[in-house]
């Protein structure tokens, strides 16, 4: 059982880290703001979810798990909301989502 938990949480944590690194690459490789926002926000939520889930597996039934659970819930709601609001404000302030890579930086 312990072996299984350790393996599972290692897997989750490494998935989370992988997603985080993907996001870091994404905010440099993507051509315009909206693409970068997409890269950042999707990986942000994913990374937080996987990492915190991995930690929750490790902490067992304690107060720490409940707090992790709260952080996770907060992230799951606030991170997409922030990204959504950011995109919306950017759009209303005149940034245009373009598909050609060099048009906007």
């Amino acid at each position: 059982m312990e072996t299984f938990l350790v393996l599972a949480s290692t897997l989750c944590i490494s998935m989370g880290v992988f997603l985080g690194i993907t996001g870091a690459i994404g905010i440099f490789r993507m051509p315009n703001f909206f693409a970068r926002l997409h890269a950042a926000s999707v990986t942000d939520s994913g990374c937080a979810f996987m990492l915190l889930f991995g930690l929750m597996l490790q902490s067992g039934f304690t107060l720490a798990t409940i707090k992790l659970c709260f952080i996770l819930l907060f992230f799951l709601i606030s991170s997409p909301t922030a990204a959504h609001a950011l995109a919306k404000t950017a759009l209303s302030c005149g940034a245009q989502p373009t598909s050609s890579p060099r048009e906007e930086r």
Binding site: G20, I27, C47, A48, L51, F75
Partner: peptide, 13 residues
């Protein structure tokens, strides 16, 4: 703004 937001998330983790 996006970078600061992402930085904050990573800090929490």
């Amino acid at each position: 703004v996006m970078a600061v937001n992402m930085f904050g998330t990573k800090t929490v983790l």
